[in-house]
Amino acid sequence: MNRIILGILTLSGLGFGFGLLLAWMSKKFHVEVDRRIMKISEILPGVNCGACGLAGCSGFAEALVNNAVNINACVACSGENKKAILEILGVQADETSTDAGQIAVMHCGGGMKCKDRFLYRGLKDCLIAAQTIGGHKACKYGCLGQGNCVAVCPFGAIVILENKTPQVSTQLCRGCKKCVAACPRKIISMMYVKKKVYIKCVSREKAADKARKCKASCIACGKCVKECSQGAIAINDNLAQINYETCVGCQKCVAVCPTKVIAVI
């Protein structure tokens, strides 16, 4: 019995002693940390997407406190959160400093509507698919559907739909541009959400060729050009293009497009 008590006493004594030591050490060797860094880190998305060019979100928070970086370098943070961060930093928030508003859009709606040249069998990777005698799609500009953009997206905002076309979720996309770099066919670009409409085709082939290969291609018919009251749409190289300087987002062009190539965010 004595032994048990002795054991308990020894161990508790040791524990108490070490506890005291630790408490003393933490006081003695305390390093002053800017509390704002912690607070900002909590508000930041925490996905470490790297779009700001710094080492993760905590690195960005530190840089913000040190005034070494602009808040808009973070593309993943929503406007409200940016305002909250600016408040912590004690900076007056204004309109421009909190307007990210850019998301990625896919300029190809081919998918299963675009014919296959052959059955591709190989690595599920767009880079490799593109190298395999020019890709398995009849259209040499269009999406290969192997999902490199899906894999690279830190927010899980891109999915390949049933019809084999990739889709960006407007809710989830934070505009980090990783997918833009990952796409070998360069069909992804960034645009402002408030601009509303975009063209879902990148092929610059002749209209007849395009129509033969893909049912979801811009056939350069010009109906949208006529419909647009602002004169914001033009056809260059067999492809409709929207001038976002003059486009007002009225979406009249969407209804007239015979191949449904003009899409709304």
């Binding site: 040249r117 052959f118 059955l119 591709y120 190989g122 395999t132 398995h136």
Partner: peptide, 12 residues
């Protein structure tokens, strides 16, 4: 024909 998708293409 070119649309004959029975042909499989795989890298070497």
């Amino acid at each position: 024909t070119q649309e004959d998708t029975k042909i499989i293409v795989e890298s070497s």
